[in-house]
Every structure is written in C-alpha cells, then in structure tokens.
C-alpha cells in the first residue's frame, strides 16, 4: 500500500493556506425578506463563493494533477456540501443563527418566507450544533472540506481507461493524506466522518429545493451557479 509522500503536518499546512478569504454579500438588504429577495441574496452569495471555491480546490495538494474530467466531476458533485460546511463553520459560535456572511445573518424564523427552506435551515442548524458539541477545530474543518471534495465522486463510477485508473489512484493517495492528518484521534475521526453523510443529505435536499425555486421562476440562477446546478441535477435525473 503506497504511502503518501507529504507529511500530515505539511498537508494540513497547505490546505490551511488554501482557505478562501471571507466574502461579503455587499447588498442593501431590505427586511422583511420576500421569497424572491431572500432566494436572490442566497444565490448571489453562492455564485461569489463558487468562484473562490474553484481557486481553493486548485490549491489542494494533488488536485490539479488529477484528470480534468475528475476535477470537474468532483466539483460538480460536492459544491453545495462545501458551501454548507463553510456555512456551518461560520455559524458554529452562533447558536440558532446561520452566518451566510458577516453582512448576511439569518435566524431560523426568517426562513418562513421561502417555501420549503425552513426544513433545510433546521438541518443546517442541527449539524452546526453537533460541530459545536464536538468543539470542531480549524484543522479538522479544513481536512473535512478536503475530504468532501476528494471523496465526492469516488463511488459514482468505476474507472474505464488507463488515465481514469491513474487519476483514481492519485485520488486515493490524497485521501490517505487527509485521513493521516486526522488519524491521531481515531474516535474523533469516526464522529467527524459520520457527519459527512448528514452533510451529503442536507446538500441533496438543498439542491432539490434550489432546482424547484429555479423551475418555478422564484429566482434567476445564472453564470457559474447555473452551470453547477445544471451539472448536478442532470447527472442524477
């Protein structure tokens, strides 16, 4: 079993450095929200974050050495999970609140104005609560994010060509590095990994919700967010 070349400490250091900067929504938020105005603010913020996410992914050691097809597959599978994990991290010290950005903070009740979103807010708050309970550390947060990115497509399809096989092997070695970085506390690693299935679940719910809002013309989805949403929903339908 081939061991990764980079030490866990160096790996963590590199992914910490890859962290994207804080983003602000930079909108004049007129409260109370309407369904359309809240969805518009959420999607505007998501589009900005997605651009930074691509730069972040390219800084994850080994990511750009994967095939371009794999890079695309991974990002289109996991983008909403990554956005949501970031949201949970920003909200971890703010019980009952979702800190989308420093200038865009929502209470659970504010979700009432968008049909179907409160259920998703509740799931996000519950997962955030769990991270608070576990006293999630920054090193663990960045490792989890890298894990979500690298793991997102692992079980979706089997490699067919030699290039695909090589890329998959590189991916597995990268995942070894991430796990290596966290493995010093195996029980904790277990608890943190168990949360990944909840994050995937809330991301799937969120994706369905966003597709519905787009289909009903509640919100106009454009640019990179549109590409990622279409990519994600077309591959599951």
């Amino acid at each position: 079993h081939h061991r990764s070349a980079m030490s866990p400490e160096e790996f963590i250091s590199r992914i910490m450095e890859a962290e994207p900067p804080e983003i602000y929504l930079m909108e004049d938020l007129k409260k109370p929200f309407t369904e359309a105005s809240m969805m518009m603010s959420l999607t505007n913020l998501a589009d900005k974050e997605l651009v930074l996410m691509i730069s972040w992914a390219k800084k994850i050691p080994g990511f750009v050495e994967l095939s371009l097809a794999d890079q695309i597959h991974l990002l289109k599978c996991c983008w909403l999970e990554i956005l949501m994990l970031g949201l949970m991290w920003r909200s971890v010290d703010h019980p009952g609140k979702l800190i989308f950005s420093p200038d865009f903070k929502l209470n659970r009740e504010e979700g009432q104005c968008v049909e179907g979103i409160m259920e998703i807010f509740d799931m996000l708050l519950a997962a955030t609560s769990r991270f608070r309970e576990l006293k999630l550390q920054r090193e663990e947060y960045v490792c989890l994010k890298a894990m979500i990115l690298l793991n997102s497509n692992l079980c979706s399809s089997s490699p067919q060509t030699a290039e695909e096989l090589e890329s998959r092997n590189k991916l597995l070695r990268l995942l070894d590095s991430v796990i290596d970085a966290l493995v010093w506390q195996t029980l904790r690693l277990g608890h943190l990994t168990m949360l990944l299935s909840h994050i995937r679940h809330v991301s799937n719910k969120g994706m369905d919700h966003l597709s519905t809002m787009k289909r009903k013309n509640v919100v106009l989805v454009y640019d990179l967010l549109l590409e990622m949403l279409d990519a994600s929903t077309s591959s599951t339908s």
Partner: peptide
Amino acid sequence: HTKLLQLLTTKPE
C-alpha cells in the same frame, strides 16, 4: 461547463 472549465484551466495570478 464553460465557466467552470475556464476557472480550472486559468493560471493563477
């Protein structure tokens, strides 16, 4: 995936 591809293949500044 035109925008995604563009962002993935552009060299960083």
